[in-house]
Design a protein around this nucleic acid. Structure first.
Lengths: 160, 160
DNA sequence: CCTCGGTTGTTGACATGTGAATCATATGCG
DNA sequence: CGCATATGATTCACATGTCAACAACCGAGG
């Protein structure tokens, strides 16, 4: 019997099992959906996130720091990723008029096409791999549990 | 109104929002718990997983392939990881008597101490960051949703 | 014994991630 | 203006992950 007056510092076996199945399954689902994205469009999850942000931005361009903040990436991570994306012609970096330190990241036509070609298959993959696995109630429960965790960790209620 | 005769190929806004908050929150939680593990013990999540498997193995040692299969890693991934762990003195590789191709991965005393020192803080972190954020019902729901996804993807019901 | 197909583990090339250091520029303040 | 400091972005060193190619070895069959 658990003694209610004694705080339990570690999870029970059941709690630990729930943690493990939850976290490992989430990783598998993410990996499957990203693999589908890559097969369908040649884009990685990181590529998609950058392209999504740029395609919604004014003039299909953003300052590098602004972009990093928007997608919640380290600037060095974004810098490296943009280098690879630039090599593939998805984005272009040009010097910034107002601030000579900075640069503007511009979505190329090729990048825009690649992004738009990828969205529908990507959304389909999310539906087929994740949404279709769950009842509407289970999906609500997942959303609520995520919200509870975010409150617990003092994070913004919504991602981004 | 949704037309029940028309299959919806893509998620609704609500479904997509649930997907995003779920997957991003799961990543944040994993990252936090691994960060705590690293601060507390100097071990990465990968280190922990290898050390856990070895510490439960007969003679605190396993064949490399056997270990890779047990923790579901690519062999090349394990090989690289073991190289780094060996440099830090956590494990040792010795030639295998029965099979000259292979090697035995042995947990060193230092690795065993590091692992045992890490478990309690690690379990505490899982409880504080994840379990304590949720009601018992929410935890059950997460477990059930993960099980539903695993069925949907034809995976083993339990991780490992 | 000897060849051939499968196994074992490593390696190389690359993509991706973090944190610290660096460089150039911008900006506030005396 | 001139300087201390902050900021924008990149770079470095490294850890981590994938996949394909490889070298060495095993074991079955001829």
């Amino acid at each position: 019997m658990d003694n209610p007056r004694r705080r339990r510092p570690v999870p029970t076996h059941e709690e630990l099992a729930a943690w493990r199945v939850h976290i490992e399954t989430s990783e598998i689902v993410r990996a499957r959906i990203e693999a589908r994205l890559h097969e369908d469009s040649g884009l990685s999850g990181g590529d998609y996130r950058v392209l999504l942000a740029l395609s919604e931005a004014e003039g299909r361009a953003m300052r590098s720091s602004e972009l990093a903040a928007h997608i919640e990436w380290e600037r060095s991570r974004l810098s490296g990723h943009l280098g690879r994306m630039e090599r593939r012609g998805l984005v272009r970096r040009e010097p910034c008029a107002e601030d000579a330190r900075g640069s503007r990241v511009v979505l190329t036509d090729s990048g825009d096409r690649a992004f738009h070609a990828s969205t529908l298959p990507h959304l389909r993959a999310i539906k087929e791999v994740f949404v279709d696995a769950l009842t509407p109630e289970q999906l609500d429960h997942l959303r609520d549990a995520a919200a509870a965790v975010r409150r617990h960790l003092h994070l913004d209620p919504l991602p981004e």
